[in-house]
């Protein structure tokens, strides 16, 4: 049983059922229409149920072949994943209020800790270097409309 639960077929089946079912469920809010004059719900509902069915087949397949295949998922490393995603969130949170120069320091500072072979001095230097580089290349040269400094400056 344990083998089934960590089987990639089983888990992707569950994911498909959840996502497909979700889309299908929400699509009931939209008009279905007729094949000749389709409503906005027609395509999503048909596709949603399609994904749901594929998911169910995968789940059944996983049970039928439980013993034959040990195609198990490897563990998810939590720490680097959270740090990388956290660095992106930091960028999104800080950019508008603090501007690109400071936000870059934060992004690199957070992301830099995601590897085991990190060195504090290296991260600091990288952060400063990238901050200058980003401000010069993106804002000054390419004129991407990014706020550069904290609001009010």
């Amino acid at each position: 049983m344990r083998q089934v639960l960590t089987n990639t077929d089983f888990l992707s089946g569950v994911l498909f059922v959840a996502l497909g079912g979700g889309f299908a469920l929400i699509s009931f809010n939209y008009g279905f229409g007729t094949p000749s004059e389709m409503g906005s719900g027609y395509f999503p509902r048909v596709l949603g149920f399609g994904v749901l069915i594929v998911g169910l087949v995968l789940v059944v397949k996983a049970f039928l072949r439980a013993r034959a295949r040990g195609d198990a998922v490897v563990a998810f490393p939590i720490r680097p994943t959270l740090l990388v995603l956290g660095s992106l969130a930091a960028f999104a949170l800080l950019l508008r209020p603090l501007g690109l120069a400071i936000t870059t320091l934060a992004l690199i500072g957070v992301a830099g800790f995601a590897t085991p072979d990190r060195k504090l001095r290296e991260i600091a230097m990288l952060a400063i270097g990238m901050s200058v580089f980003a401000c010069v290349v993106f804002v000054e040269l390419l004129k991407v409309p990014l706020p550069l400094w904290p609001r009010g400056f």
Binding site: V84, S87, L88, F91, A92, L93, L95, R96, L100, T104, L107, I108, A111, G112, A114, T115, D117, R118, E122, I123, L126, A127, M130, A134, F138, V144, P145, L146
Partner: peptide, 23 residues
Amino acid sequence: YRLLFPAILLFCCIGLYSVQNSV
């Protein structure tokens, strides 16, 4: 790679932001 990926993340963020000028 420990130096490369934070830079890639930064470029991704700037690119993502500039699509619609929105975080």
